[in-house]
Design a protein around this nucleic acid. Structure first.
Lengths: 358, 358
DNA sequence: CACGTTGATGACTACGTATGCACAGAGTGC
DNA sequence: GCACTCTGTGCATACGTAGTCATCAACGTG
């Protein structure tokens, strides 16, 4: 009786990659695998002649050491994860890029974790990917205030650092700008121009930036006894749409504000778009300010007055803080907070209030 | 005699992560590691009761299967690399994000490889990172025409796909828009408005998009015997600065063009900025068109007439093509090219030439 | 000349997981 | 009661690398 035909729908052989390993190089060079490993790691105990020979053979065979094998045994991946929710927001590329470069400078590679939603079962899946040891540490940039993620990371002992935003129920190293201070400085600037009827389009209240910038603005205006009545306040996610619809609503009011503080530059740009659409002059009829100082804010079509935060420096610092944790150079119990100075950048969307509306 | 004190400056224990492994779970649940593995992979041969028990114990211990261990033995990382040079260019976030989502939908994660320069020793380092088996395949988006990278990937048998740009000396699956066609359609639109003196600010000649869009524009204008004299042509990288300086140069000419074709939207926006700076009316004094149709192009402050390319669909297709390769569903020798239809989007930066300058 | 000493190298194992194989026990048909 | 099939589980091994220990040759040195 002939053998039963093996009908298994074998998981299609993944292109049958003839991956060349250290053993192959060893065989071809007439040495042991250990020697190949040592040659690539420039181990001092290996003679230079043999090292040169091994490297030559390796090059001829097209050998590249496997990251998986190496990481498994060293228990170090030399990889850092970065959690971002919304890369299409013009803000994040400007934090991802410098962070990538900073990490590269420290010998680490960067992996992007983009998660759309937070909460629910989805959350567990996302968390698993953070915790599966493919990464030595995590940079958190889009954490919501009540997020379970930092808590879970702390519980599992995976190093992390907050960048831009923080979550205050779980302590952790962070690199942020002083958002409240920045907003209050901008409030002073608004007051200095003579505004007394001020509106705002804030970002989400469940983010530390949204909350702190609101707090700073209110405090700063309070100095001159200027209030921020509810009817002059809008709120929404950090996107152009929020600014656009907020602007529409505020300017339709019987007594619209003479200046509007926007939660970030993206919102401000959305507001500027609405202004253009409705033929509202800025700053002629209404002044508009942002926060972040995106490169875009300086473009001639915008010339947005805004609050600068030193993104490159913050990213560099976050990278350093995280790597220090990963490599065990930080005190385990001690939290290191890097708070940067905001800087008001004067351009041309903030002017005096229109005559007769003061 | 007391033992000699071990003074070794031991490589600072990386936070001494008590990583819990499948063996730990097995011990705690009173089963073997194999059973733990089977529980997590939902192996049919495992009884549901035991599976439930194992998962419960695993959850209590906070166990997450190691990506390294798994990938090493399965020889599949379920990870795809994406090579990008310049994330701060407003274009790329809009390709990274949909690609990430498409890959996630297919069960793959995405890793970003950002390399600043191409060429030189730097190149070898970057290449090594692509080839170290940390990835099942690569999406190439910023390939230069003569690049060694696709050649090397092909030689090593690592699957890859071109997205947006291609390199023609090495064949490979790709998802691109028909750039030449798009540019020629735009040329027809420019002609239809009555322009005869047309200028251009092209992207880099060493990119397929730069080359093909130029070719398409010239061909499209040629239909009406309109030439593109050298003095009306600028070239530069795909950034706002190129558009800005190009615009300055062209509009200072004794006989400036009445319409300018820009290599992409970013260049066009740079040109619009220069126009704003110099108080040049668009399209009153000069018409301006772009290519890509970034979300930004539709903003009220720009209202840029441009050529749309279906980025989400292209990204989805690229993801599918690559995964087909990785999982061995594609014919090894056969190249699959997905070429998408461009679409001219009429907004308000293209109008008739100014009277008396025709 | 016996004995450390040094320097260079290989054999071997661990890392955490998946999986082929063996095997135990329960059920089934005759 | 026996041969047989199933079902569930554990054992052992492999994946590619780093690093520990042993080995071995060459080389002074007293």
């Amino acid at each position: 009786m002939p053998p039963k035909p093996v009908n298994a729908v074998r998981s299609l052989s993944a292109a049958a990659l003839a991956s060349v390993t250290g053993h192959d190089v060893a065989r071809a060079a007439g040495v042991s695998q250990s020697t190949v490993s040592r040659a690539f790691r420039n181990d001092a105990r290996l003679s230079q002649t043999k090292r040169a020979h091994v490297l030559e053979v390796a090059k001829a065979l097209g050998y590249t050491p496997s990251h998986l094998g190496r990481s498994l045994v060293t228990r170090l991946t030399r990889t850092v994860g970065m959690a971002v929710t919304d890369l299409e927001n013009p803000f994040y590329p400007h934090v991802v890029a410098p962070l990538h470069d900073a990490l590269a400078g420290l010998g680490y590679r960067m992996v992007l974790f983009m998660e759309r939603l937070e909460g629910g079962e989805n959350d567990q899946l996302a968390l698993d990917r953070l915790l599966d040891r493919s990464t030595d540490g995590i940079v958190l940039t889009t954490t919501l205030l009540g997020s379970a993620i930092p808590r879970e990371l702390a519980r599992r002992g995976l190093p992390f650092v907050f960048l831009v935003r923080v979550s205050d129920d779980v302590g952790g190293d962070c690199a942020v700008v002083d958002n409240a201070l920045g907003a209050s400085l901008m409030a002073a600037e608004i007051l200095r121009h003579g505004h007394r009827r001020v509106g705002a389009i804030f970002g989400p209240a469940e983010t530390s930036t949204g909350r702190d910038r609101e707090r700073g603005l209110r405090a700063g205006l309070g100095v001159a006894d200027v209030e921020l009545p509810d009817e002059l306040v809008c709120r929404g996610p950090y996107g152009v749409e929020t600014g656009s619809s907020g602007m529409e609503r505020l300017m339709k009011l019987p007594m619209p504000p003479t200046a509007i503080f926007c939660g970030n530059d993206t919102i401000a740009i959305g507001a500027l778009n609405a202004a253009r659409r409705r033929d509202i002059e800025v700053p002629g009829e209404v002044s508009l300010v942002g926060f972040d100082d995106l490169p875009m804010a300086g473009w001639d079509v915008f010339q947005l007055t805004t609050v600068h935060q030193p993104m490159e420096e913050m990213a560099r610092t976050a990278a350093q803080l995280l790597v220090d944790r990963v490599e065990g150079r930080s005190e385990p119990g001690q939290v290191r907070r890097a708070v940067f100075e905001p800087l008001v950048v004067i351009r041309s969307t903030l002017g005096p209030p229109p005559k007769g509306r003061l």
